[in-house]
Design a protein around this nucleic acid. Structure first.
Lengths: 336, 336
DNA sequence: CTGTTAGCGCGTTCAC
DNA sequence: GTGAACGCGCTAACAG
């Protein structure tokens, strides 16, 4: 492998091997049966000597395919997104594809993400931001014929697959359980985007509805579900209130787990003094004392999502739109 | 915007606007001053009408630049990697670049990652797998003139920048502190890759060294630092031993925090019965009871890394190799 | 059966 | 404001 400044091209390999570029391409792509053994060897030797590596841009241009997929998420470091990233990355790897990640944490970034996607930086995308894309943005993407899997409860399949969660019923069940066991003052520990976003939150709607149906006090919604430190502080603040809650429903398991800790640190018993319910069904909920009662899917995995995407990406003709719903349930353990 | 099957090209926009493709390109890239206002408007209108979006592959090919960077990490869902991903993503976003993520969790994947990188799927990369790349792999990458920032204590700059952490001294300090406060049986809660990998671990070396210097018992190294559930189980197992430890040094803060919980659940006092030290200096260590004593950087951020990379990526000529060392310290809070 | 010729994919930019 | 070359790999059609 000779050192040189410009990357060698198939032309140079061909020249060195004394063959045409076509032959080089056939050899390098394993299209054997078209090339004699001896020639094959010469080409490989030449490529090796020059340190030839094909240009992925040129290849993508010619193939009209990038062999990359894109993951659009709301943030990094959230259990569900991380798992999605892992599962998609594993599936991509298996298919010989790469993964681009775009973090969409503002409307401006959403626009930029849509632009990028329309420029065909990837052959398909899983779209799962915490704030769903606008209809117009989705249409822009399907308009550019990009294979798409959208994770959202707010849209129906329309040129793309949809993966949704049916969380409402399970949440209702959780709140009914809290009410039935005598909780009168239920606090809701919310994600930031539930408070600022325009999108409805099934969880919070279930909360408001339950308060209403059971004739329970004024709503008590505070932020703090996004991270553990925030959750701890939020719970501390809740406990300092004169109308201290006797139950906390946290929009994330991480926050709920932290709530249990904060309550214990404050000398309160869970669930006797304060009941705690989380969302997500993290493994970690099994090691708290008491174990965390939660609302969530049977297991956190996104193989389905990855499969839907690659079905579309690798398909010859556009497949029918599909829709998968993951049913959540109320998983009663010890904290409520 | 007319619906059509093939994506429109600059040629078609040019034709519709009655100008040349060169003009279209100039207009679309804001190279004004070369184009009259009226023409400009016509081009823009034509592009809009056709729903023109430029092909990023063609652009990359021509520009010899992908406007993408790559992040190579050992896994997803680990606090430090997640933060790195966030910081890199933010920097990339600002520069109008995208981020590809490659998860390298096996030697085979490392080879594939190096291949991809050599094919120029990105204009530069931050390489930070839990198991460092082999020298030959690094050389293969610098050989293809790829701007590179390597996070590793095991290599010296050589055509790439290196970001290292000086954790040894702080770890030694931590162990000395444990010994000085009378701990005689110190357990080490290790990452899986510390046990299986060939790479030396500064933390564990500091541990072994300390045992030796202070004449402390046989080593007690168990896996469990990788995730919270594993950490909880590992600590339970440690406590069931006849030679129960009186101190636990966990290779991650997440494990250390979990250890505190497990100890409390077992009815033991921290630090009186068992001292706990973590690694990483997570914010979360401030909300445990007692607050977590840890070894780590003053703050977990990777702006430096991102800056180094983009300095290289955006530089006209290859800059000098640089090396940044983040000094860790022993941060004594309540748990030891 | 083995290998070649030649054009294509599409945006960018220099010389006129 | 334009013509045309160029970046580089892929493959259909063709020749020996």
């Amino acid at each position: 492998m000779t050192a040189s400044h410009r990357r060698p091209t198939t032309r140079e390999v061909a020249a060195l091997a004394g063959v045409s570029v076509a032959t080089v391409s056939y050899v390098l792509n394993g299209k054997d049966g078209r090339v004699g053994e001896e020639t094959r060897r010469r080409v490989l030797a030449a490529a090796d000597e020059l340190g030839y590596v094909r240009s992925s841009s040129a290849r993508s241009l010619r193939l009209r395919r990038t062999e990359r997929v894109c993951l659009v998420v709301g943030s990094i470091g959230v259990p569900a997104y991380d798992q999605l990233a892992r599962d998609l990355s594993a599936a991509a790897d298996e298919a010989g594809y790469g993964v681009m990640t775009i973090v969409v944490d503002s409307p401006a970034r959403a626009d930029k993400a849509v632009d990028l996607l329309r420029q065909h930086v990837a052959d398909g995308a899983v779209v799962a931001p915490s704030v769903p894309l606008a209809d117009a943005q989705l249409r822009a993407l399907t308009g550019s014929r990009l294979p798409l899997v959208v994770m959202s409860n707010a849209v129906a399949p329309d040129g793309f697959d949809v993966v949704r969660t049916s969380e409402a019923a399970a949440c209702v069940e959780a709140f009914d359980h809290l009410a039935a066991t005598g909780r009168r003052r239920i606090a809701y520990l919310a994600h930031e985007h539930e408070l600022t976003g325009r999108q409805p939150s099934e969880r919070r709607d279930a909360y408001l509805d339950a308060l209403d149906r059971h004739g329970l006090g004024p709503e008590l919604v505070v932020p703090g579900a996004d991270d553990r430190v925030g959750a701890y502080r939020a719970v501390e603040a809740l406990l300092a209130r004169p109308d201290r809650p006797d139950a906390i429903f946290a929009a994330s398991d991480r926050a709920a787990i932290t709530a249990i800790l904060a309550l214990r640190d404050a000398g309160l018993a869970v669930p006797e003094d304060v009941a705690v319910v989380g969302v997500g069904n993290l493994e970690e909920g099994r090691i708290t004392r008491p174990p965390l009662t939660t609302v969530g899917p049977p297991a956190m995995d996104f193989h389905d999502v990855a499969r839907l995407l690659f079905d579309r990406v690798l398909a010859d003709e556009t497949p029918f739109d599909r829709e998968i719903t993951t049913s959540w349930s109320f998983i009663r353990r010890g904290s409520a």
